[in-house]
Simulated assay, not measured.
Amino acid sequence: MPNFAALVSGTGWHVADLLRAAAAVDVSLHVLAFGDVEASVGIGPGRVSACDVGLDGVDGVLVRMMPPGSLEQVVFRMDALHRLTAVGVPVWNPPRSVEAAVDKYLTLSLLERRGLPVPATWTGQTATSALEAFDALGGDVVVKPLFGSEGRGLMRVGHRELAWRCFHALERTGSVIYLQRWIRHPGHDLRLFVLGGRVLGAIRRTARDGEWRTNVAIGGRAEAWTPDAEAARLAVAATEAVGAVFAGVDLIEDLDAGTRVLIEVNAVPGWRALSAATGVDVAAALLDALREAAR
């Protein structure tokens, strides 16, 4: 029986779903907290472990969630994942893809390099430059945290005085200022779950009344959606651009341009809403694919 480990930041629905799926597909799954990861160098053979379980000897590692931490903690956790890949342990997603996808600026730069459609975006560190970018982007932008998920921390800014206040507040806290041109969309976006070079399932997420953010975590409604060939192509290409094996890829329709653009690639995506809407057993598919990769 294959022996896998899931690195997590806590227990919850996704952990329970992975444990359920592990029993269904006949694999052994250890759930390990990222905060308990430790490693040795120059002591015996050297290993990466967590909760007294050596990870060098497992057949595969699934990165479920990277918890918040100090810069040193996050860097060390990524170092540990790189160590595992160096000794031949399949790590999903690979650490390079996790590093790329967690950073919105780096993600979009990788997508643009592949010639994929992305929204007009500016990133910088000073309020003065941000105000110039605000004007250049049409005076209507979405301000996003560079690191963030589930639509939290996003703010639409369409007034210059508010932009001045917002950008100066971000500068004073030492934050990177990340601005994206506001895209007039039909009130919904598309989330496609890619695994192993194909779309496993997809949903359309519709914002609740009075809200422009479509994320299910903040009240959006999800329904099953069958992707067309172009949407599937974009999702698979975006996943490959960040080097991920699986990803949640977000597309939105730009009504003014009449095209779709890629908004985000999530290398540690949730699948609760997608599974509920589509009936796809994402957890079982992930573990089954990881077992094939570990053979």
Rank of each mutant, 00 (worst) to 15 (best):
M1W: 01
P2C: 11
P2M: 14
N3V: 15
A5N: 09
A6C: 12
S9E: 15
D17P: 01
L19T: 15
V25Q: 11
V27T: 10
L29F: 04
H30K: 08
L32A: 02
A33L: 15
F34S: 13
F34M: 15
D36A: 12
A39E: 11
S40D: 05
G42A: 10
D52M: 04
G60A: 15
R64E: 08
R64Y: 05
P67R: 14
F76R: 11
R77F: 04
L81T: 05
R83C: 08
T85S: 11
T85F: 01
P90V: 12
V91A: 09
V91E: 13
W92H: 10
N93S: 10
P94F: 07
P94Q: 09
R96H: 07
A100R: 15
A101K: 07
L106M: 05
T107V: 07
T107S: 14
L108E: 03
S109I: 08
S109D: 09
S109M: 14
L110M: 13
L111I: 10
E112L: 13
R113V: 02
G115I: 13
L116I: 14
V118L: 12
P119S: 11
W122S: 09
W122R: 10
W122Y: 08
G124M: 07
Q125N: 09
A127W: 05
T128F: 03
S129P: 00
A130G: 06
A133N: 09
G138K: 11
D140S: 15
V141H: 04
L146H: 05
F147Y: 06
G148M: 04
S149I: 06
G151W: 04
R152E: 04
G153L: 04
M155F: 00
R156C: 00
G158I: 00
H159M: 01
R160C: 00
R160F: 00
E161R: 06
L162M: 06
A163P: 02
W164F: 00
H168K: 07
A169S: 09
E171A: 03
E171M: 01
R172Y: 00
T173I: 02
T173Q: 09
G174N: 01
Q180I: 03
L190V: 10
L192V: 01
V194M: 07
G196Y: 00
I203S: 02
R205P: 01
A207R: 04
D209G: 00
G210M: 13
V216N: 07
V216L: 13
I218G: 05
G219Q: 01
R221N: 01
W225L: 15
P227K: 04
P227G: 04
P227V: 03
R233P: 00
A235S: 13
A237Q: 11
A238N: 12
A241N: 10
V242G: 07
G243A: 07
V245C: 04
A247Y: 07
E253K: 10
L255P: 06
L255N: 13
A257E: 13
G258A: 08
R260N: 05
I263V: 15
W271C: 08
W271D: 04
S275L: 03
A276S: 12
G279E: 14
D281Y: 06
V282M: 06
V282T: 09
V282P: 03
A283H: 05
L286W: 00
L286Y: 00
R291S: 14
A293L: 13
A294L: 07
